[in-house]
Every structure is written in C-alpha cells, then in structure tokens.
Amino acid sequence: MITVATLLWTPNGRSLPFSRMYDESWVAKLLNGFARNLSHEFRFVLFTDRERDLPGCIEQRRISADRPDYSTCIEPFGLGVPMILCGLDTVVTGDCDALAASCFTRKTIGLPRDPYAPHRACNGVCLVPAGFESVANLHRGENDMEWVRKFPHSFIDDEFPGEVLSYKGDVEGKCLGSAKVVYFHGRKKPHELSHLSWIKEHWR
C-alpha cells in the first residue's frame, strides 16, 4: 500500500507569513485530492504537533520537535515505506497511479527539478521508495531541501514529463497540460486563486 504523507503544525516564530494559514481544511482537501486520483487503497499520514479533529482514516503522528520548522519536513522519511510526500499547499489534478507505482520499483528518491535552477532538485513533491529511513535518522536540523539533495535521487520531470509541476514556475499564466500534481511554494497559495477553474475543480 502506498503512503501519502504531509505535515501540519501551529505557526510559530519560525513560520514565514506565506505558511501561516494552514489548518485542518487543507489536510482534508489534500486527502480528497488523492482519494479522487488514486485507484488503489492508500494510507494517509499527517505529522502534526497536536491531535487534530480530522476523519479517522487519517493517521496522525506527533512531530518530535518542540518548535517545528521547515526542516521538520524531513521527519516523514522515517516511515521507511513507499511514500508520496508533499506539502499541504499541493493540488492533485489527475491520475496519480503511475507516480504511486513508481515508489515500489524505484531505487532513488524522485524529486522535481528546481523550477528556477533546473540542474538541481527541489522537494516540492517527493516520490520515496522503501528503505530511505536514513534521510530522517541522520538529519540534525539541516535545511530540508538541501538535505534531501544529498541523497541518491532522480528527476521526476525526466521520468514523468509535465506531470508534477510548480505553480509559479510552470503553471501560472499557462494551462495545466498533463499535470497530475501541482505544488506551491512561497507566496501565492490555492486559497488566493479560487477564481481559477482548475482550482475550483481540484482543490476541494
């Protein structure tokens, strides 16, 4: 069974302004997006700083850090299972079966190319095979994106062209094309784009 993992914590002094709006409704929308676009049963795991009022089908795991920050996004790697790891600011727009299936056969972590520096990876969405617990176990608070780049990885863009896209780098002002997952980063989030038809359709 594929695991889908994400994180939610109460904003603190380490939280930037563009990530202070997340709440349980974002978790539900992400779950719903994968439920509509994965044909097989999946496990949905939320790493959180406290118990949340969410459907029982969501497995809640307590974040280990007393004051979570963005480096906490490394923690789900400790599950050590085939996993799609993404942020709450992710919109699932199409059939994710092939992306999920790749997590059972791949030898390296699948990462998108950085939309602003395509020679290197970013961690907007991670396709993770089993056996990569060391990403979490060896982590000592390093920047999450720089840390995950240190481990063997391949580019999702090369394996699944046009299927995992950055909103700002690939989609804004353009059409979705064959996108299956659109990840957001920095400013501009789905709740600010409710006028877009594809947001209305897929982020609910």
Rank of each mutant, 00 (worst) to 15 (best):
F42H: 11
Y183A: 07
R106H: 03
L138T: 07
L165G: 08
G162D: 14
N37K: 03
A117W: 10
V92A: 05
L111M: 09
L46I: 11
L30W: 01
R36K: 15
D114L: 03
G110E: 06
L38M: 10
K168V: 14
A117K: 13
S134W: 04
P76F: 08
S102A: 13
V164S: 07
D97C: 09
W26P: 00
D157R: 08
R149L: 02
R187H: 12
P68W: 06
G173C: 09
F155L: 03
W9S: 05
K174Y: 12
R61F: 01
E192M: 13
E142G: 07
S25D: 10
W26M: 02
P55D: 12
F160G: 11
T90H: 05
C86H: 01
E163T: 14
F18H: 14
P161S: 11
L88G: 11
S178C: 12
W147N: 01
D114G: 10
F47Q: 06
S166V: 13
A130P: 05
C86T: 14
N37L: 07
L193N: 08
A5V: 06
Q60V: 13
G186A: 09
A179S: 15
F47Y: 15
L196A: 06
C57F: 07
F155E: 06
S25C: 00
G33K: 05
T3E: 05
W9R: 06
